[in-house]
Structure formats: C-alpha cells, structure tokens
Amino acid sequence: MQVKVRAFAMLRDILPAEHDAEVPGGSTVGGLLDHLSARYPGLGEALFTPEGVVRDYVNILKNGRNIHFSGGLATPLDDGDTVALFPPAAGG
C-alpha cells in the first residue's frame, strides 16, 4: 500500500519534503518509520532516542492527527494515509 510522507523543517535535509512510500498491508506508523530510517541515514537519530522512543520534541501526525492520541507507533496505516513528521523548530 502507498502512504504519503511529508517532512518539515530540518528533516527535509534528510528525506524528501513529500513522497510516497510503499509499505506492506497491515503496517503501522512505527513500521513505516523503521522503513524510512533504514532508507535515509540520519532519520532514525533525528526521530528516536537511543532506546527507540520517539523524541519528546518530535510530532508525528497521521492524516492531521497526532499519533500520541491514536496508539503511538502502533497506530495502523491504511492505503492513502498521510504521515507528517515535524521536528523542533525555532525562530522568532
């Protein structure tokens, strides 16, 4: 199945700003991120602590909803979903 991945801020230096990822049926957000981390060096370190936990300052949205409220990394994916990755941003 295909999932659209959107990256923001400094993550655009690691992976394309927007692209389609092919993942097996029944995949989860965690599985997608593992797949992307294997394909794009540096992504795993940007998203996860050494223990494999999503960093506190990283927001991951599935179809506009934070996965924190829908199962975390175990959130299931469906064909056509959009997953957005938001790292910390600063400015003023």
Rank of each mutant, 00 (worst) to 15 (best):
L36R: 02
E45H: 02
F48L: 07
I14S: 10
A9F: 01
D13N: 15
D79Q: 14
A7G: 12
L32H: 09
G71Q: 02
E22F: 11
L36Q: 07
A7N: 12
D78R: 13
D20M: 14
G44L: 00
T75Y: 06
V53H: 05
L47F: 10
F8W: 11
L32G: 05
L73V: 09
S27V: 10
L47R: 03
P88A: 04
G91C: 10
G64F: 06
R12F: 05
R55P: 08
D34S: 12
S70C: 05
G42F: 00
L33K: 04
R65I: 14
L36D: 00
D34R: 14
R6P: 03
L32C: 06
K62A: 11
A90F: 11
E22M: 09
L73E: 09
P88Q: 00
I67K: 07
D56R: 14
A17I: 01
Y40L: 03
A17F: 11
L43S: 07
D13A: 08
V5I: 10
A89N: 09
V5E: 00
T82R: 11
F86M: 06
M10W: 12
K62H: 11
G30Y: 05
T75G: 04
F8H: 13
G80F: 03
P41V: 07
G52N: 09
V53T: 15
R6S: 08
L77I: 08
T82Y: 07
A89K: 09
P88I: 08
E51A: 00
K62N: 10
G44W: 01
K62C: 12
K4A: 15
L73F: 10
E45A: 14
A38Q: 14
K4Y: 09
S37G: 08
G52M: 03
H35L: 15
V23D: 12
P87G: 02
N66L: 01
Y57Q: 15
P16I: 07
T28E: 04
A9G: 03
D78M: 10
M1N: 09
V5D: 01
D79W: 04
V58W: 11
G42N: 01
V3Y: 02
